[in-house]
Amino acid sequence: MLELCGATKVYRKGSRTIRAADGLSLTVKPGDFLVIHGPSGSGKSTLLLMAGGMLPPDSGQVRFGGEDLYRWGPARRNRYRREQVGFVFQRFFLIPHITVYDNIRLRYSLRGAAAGAAEGIAALAGRLGIAERLGHYPGELSVGEQQRAAVARALAGAPGVVLADEPTGNLDPDNAAIIIDCLREEARQGRSVVMVTHNPAFIAMGTGEVHLVAGRAVEPAKGA
């Protein structure tokens, strides 16, 4: 179970202070599909990065399995990301000089599970409709295919938590639907899925939602 307990994050740029997270508290249980939405600059990405062990809050806690991530050392936090977290970003961030297959396989490799990678990759590629594109380089794929490949990479090895930052932001409706269906299916299989989106149509698909404004949750999450 992933929890944010009064997490606060303040950025300072010169004399300006931006409260990206202001005492945020929420809980994401296995099987939850939590949708985060709000205007630009409201702290949605900051929430995901804090939850993913990438960005320590200035105050408050981020807990996984009851333990504060940021009390762990860097090595254990790396292991948390490696074994428990799958990130999906709006801009995909596929590594351009290796094939789609290797982009996905890299995640298995980092987890030390490369031996069983081939079957897992084939299954994920089949689900996301990129089986024919595994041997291609990211630059040879369409935008929709790149995002599906990025989702496949995030789901490789069945992480406990999937954090998706506007995964459908650049996609046409068909590709967006494929991604959303896939993430919902992951939640149904027991993963904790947190997705940031601007698309009102997807908000209702979650088991819960958080509306962020200036780093604060202004509506209670339905499923939390």
Binding site: M54, P74, N78, R81, E83, V85, F87, F89, F93
Partner: peptide, 13 residues
């Protein structure tokens, strides 16, 4: 930079 970012997000140090 992006490759560095995603590798860190995937749990490498």
């Amino acid at each position: 930079r992006q490759e560095t970012g995603i590798l860190l997000a995937m749990g490498t140090g």
